[in-house]
Amino acid sequence: ILELRLVQATLFKNVLEAISDLFSKANFDFSGTGLELQAMDTSHVALVALLLRAEAFNHYLCDRDLSMGLNLADMAKAFRCANNDDIITIKAEEDWSDTVTFTFESPEDGEISIFDFDFVGTNGVPLEIPEFPESEYQAKVRMPSAKFMRICKKLSSFGDSGDRDTVVIISVDKECVNFFTRGKTGTSTIVCRQTQTVDKPKEPTLIEMKEQVSLAFDLRYMNSFSKGSTLSDQVTISLSSNLPAVFEYKIAETGYIRYYMLPRIEE
């Protein structure tokens, strides 16, 4: 039996908003530890991995590991009907081997909405994701997630919006991280300096650099990743020319959402 309860729908609504535009299906793995979700976009360029530990839920009962593929577009539609303070219950029973039930209950008027989702095949997930040692990354940048989202939006408005292949070059050099893109008739660079934590202790931009690094990424994907900002105040971007970049948002004390993408390589 699987039975989970969250007294505020917000967390799950935000998770779906953070992944459903880029990823159409996801694999949900429930175990004693918690929920582990993985999804790949249809081009197999980006991977998202989410962990929500059992403690993130107000009630968590999972007596047998359960893995299910679910359609994220359908789920996002259902969750858009849920209010932020609705109580969510997630239930699956062993004899219903191919359905999971999500129930939204309004604490104010007692209205209950019930959605049954059929399991679907997933896009080749889950994959094995090793934890790479910190030392393998050439640079790490931590900044407010709202700032990262703003940077992506600025770059998108400059780059030709009709061009799906706008590339952003992220360069880290000492105490600066630069975001560079080329539009039709010029270029745009956004420079972020490491900020003094004394001034704004809650919103630092921190740069750890082992060596200078300059990598190219697809802006369209970065824009989607920046939607993780509803889940965390800070984003950490780990960069390496040999490893997939990781855009990580920590979810309070109870988990994380990590987006992985390889840099584009000059041919």
């Binding site: 790949m40 081009s43 197999h44 360029v45 980006a46 991977l47 080749g124 889950p126 994959l127 094995e128 994701i129 590339v167 190219a216 697809d218 490893l243 997939p244 992985y260 993408m261 390889l262 584009r264 390589i265 000059e266 041919e267």
Partner: peptide, 14 residues
Amino acid sequence: VRKQSQITAFFSSP
């Protein structure tokens, strides 16, 4: 031209 590799080139099925 910059080529985009698939993430599956790096991570594999368990």
